[in-house]
Design a protein around this nucleic acid. Structure first.
Length: 565
DNA sequence: GCCGTTTTCGGCCCGACTGTTTTCAGTCG
């Protein structure tokens, strides 16, 4: 016993075993739903605050975690009680050379890796890494494959803000549970609402910081401490991102919160005005909150979403910061799908849910005819849908369903419906769903041509990016913004947590040029309307005011904007 | 293996398009 590693069995280690099992089962082409179940469970476990090991010893109910049923619970118990998982060990032994190694890299797609193995005549992750670094994989298999391997071979170091929200809440509750902790506030990129975060930062006030640092190491069973200094500690979370704790006393809370919130560029510009925070902290003045710090230097309070080191400090000095748009300003939804195409709920149900949120209108933007996989609506069916919505609207008071479509922009820049049909719609959202590989110039030309159609109103998810998955096609945002401005077109901030497209940077460029933006959810079910908050976060990071967001307008005003000459 | 306003079974996106890794696997929502 004495020689054994005293480290507790963390949830990350348990999740890793389950993910490896899934990977090896996939190699053997076992039931793909079973494989997915193990993968899902592993992912869920990585953000659980309690120690699963402890729960097993205490006889706790593991199945209360979504995605963990009797089967996975039994596997977790086996891992905790015996230190291994018999099925995993067996599959490892039975797996062909090379395949077993892939089991340790659950983010690698097996079929792709095995193809690379075969073609290059290799059979280990080490050789795979070598070929990746030498550029052999990119040369022989292309950039996409190289990117996939690079992503899968390294530990994840970032997560979507949307997923980080739950982890942040779990951590905050865990920290507050410490009796010595008097106050805790989340800072960092999470507070600035950056769409992808690589760490979570908490500012804490406590009587015993070292004790808190010890306690946090038990989050999720085992959260290793990777660095420590006076009043600061850094941990590696099971989800792959880092956790920073910073101690601060009440008199300097505002200074600490600004410092921990960042960003680096914001702080550098700020320090040029304020001098070092260290000296401020040494002065007898109190900086109990952030506003006090900014005010001391005649700066207005700067919302965290704006702290990226652009022009926010100058504007705070000239008292001309924007009044950022909020979710409460949104009057309606302009991008949503129903069962007419690939949505989960009927037009009536979607409208009911939108109305329950207090919206005044909902645009039904089902996919257009070319997008077969999403059950794109045929010309005849869209005519029928137009009449159907007209009928519904006659029976609705104080709410309007807008006749629309998410119209595919075809490869030649034409729109996916004839003009006489488009003319019957209240407005259109036009998007690219195919031929992502055209290249920057061709893609830009394609969209410019589409904008020349007078029935084009809003450009949907302008770059097609999927965060942490796919970079999106390149566009010349400057040309598109100019053209949109001239033609009277608008952009969209798509609120899907893995899109958030336009980016804050592009949205800012559009808004500065006077091109207004729709903040939309792209909801495929009634449950997705609340995702608007993710798009609002992005809009705020772009510095957008209510006046720059078209769906902050009542429909009557919006209708005028959509009528192009 | 998980799940349930479809609840103890039967689903769990899927199917057309694309193209060079070339006739199947990757990709799009």
């Amino acid at each position: 016993m004495a020689a054994e590693d005293p480290r507790p069995l963390g949830n990350a280690a348990i999740a890793k075993r389950l993910a490896s099992l899934a990977q090896l089962m996939a190699i053997r082409k076992e039931n793909p739903f079973k494989v997915r179940a193990y993968r899902r469970a592993a992912a869920r476990i990585r953000s659980v605050a309690e120690s699963l090991e402890q729960m097993v010893h205490d006889g706790g109910d593991l199945t209360r975690f979504a995605g963990v049923g009797e089967g996975v619970a039994a596997a977790i118990r086996e891992i905790v009680l015996t230190g291994s998982l018999a099925k995993l060990e067996r599959l490892r032994e039975e797996s062909p050379t090379g395949a077993a190694g892939i089991g340790d890299y659950p983010r690698l797609d097996l079929r792709r890796v095995l193809r690379v193995y075969k073609k290059l005549g290799i059979d280990s992750i080490e050789e795979l890494r070598e070929r990746l670094e030498s550029g052999a994989i990119e040369r022989q298999f292309g950039a996409r494959m190289a990117q996939h391997i690079a992503q899968g071979i390294d530990e994840p170091r970032a997560m979507l803000l949307y997923h980080a929200d739950a982890l942040q809440a779990a951590l905050e509750a865990f920290i507050l549970d410490d009796a010595a902790v008097k106050r805790v506030e989340a800072a960092g990129a999470w507070r600035r609402r950056v769409e992808i975060v690589e760490d979570l930062v908490f500012l804490v006030e406590t009587d015993d910081f070292p004790a808190l640092a010890r306690r946090v190491q038990r989050f999720g069973g085992d959260t290793p401490l990777v660095a420590q200094a006076s009043g600061r500690a850094t941990f590696k979370l099971a989800a792959g991102i880092l956790l920073h704790l910073c101690h601060e006393d009440p008199a300097h809370w505002g200074l600490g919160l600004i410092r921990c919130t960042g960003s680096g560029p914001h702080l550098r510009k700020l320090h040029a005005i304020t001098g070092s925070f260290r000296e401020l902290a040494a002065s007898p003045e109190s900086f109990a909150d952030e506003a006090a710090v900014y005010a001391r230097f005649n700066l207005d309070y700067i919302e965290p979403e704006l702290r990226e080191g652009r022009d926010e400090i100058e504007r705070a000095g000239s008292h001309s910061l924007p009044t950022l748009v909020t979710a409460a300003d949104i009057m309606g939804e302009l991008h949503a799908h129903s069962t007419s195409s690939d949505g989960a709920h009927s037009i009536q149900d979607m409208a009911g849910a939108a109305r329950d949120r207090g919206y005044r209108y909902l645009g039904m933007t089902d996919h257009s005819q070319s997008l077969k996989i999403a059950r794109g609506v045929s010309v005849a069916d869209l005519w029928a849908q137009i009449r159907f919505i007209d009928n519904l609207n006659e029976r609705l008071a104080d709410f309007r369903i807008l006749k629309s479509s998410e119209v595919d922009i075809l490869e030649d820049g034409s729109l996916d419906y004839p003009d006489d049909l488009l003319a019957e719609l209240d407005y259109t959202v036009c998007s690219i769903h195919s031929r992502f590989g055209l290249g920057r110039d061709a893609q830009t030309e394609r969209i410019l041509r589409a904008m020349d159609n007078k029935h084009f109103n809003i450009l949907g998810h302008a770059t097609g990016r999927l965060l942490l998955k796919r970079p999106g096609y390149e566009i010349d945002i400057g040309r598109l913004v100019d053209h949109a401005k001239q033609a009277g077109c608008f952009f969209e901030i798509n609120s899907s947590p893995d899109r958030l497209d336009l980016s804050a940077e592009y949205a800012r460029i559009a808004a500065l040029a006077g091109v207004k933006i729709a903040v939309s959810t792209d909801a495929h079910s009634t449950r997705e309307f609340p995702l608007i908050r993710c798009g609002i976060d992005q809009a705020r990071r772009a510095g957008l005011e209510k006046s720059s967001v078209i769906n902050c307008l009542p429909w009557e005003d919006l209708a005028r904007l959509f009528r192009r000459a």
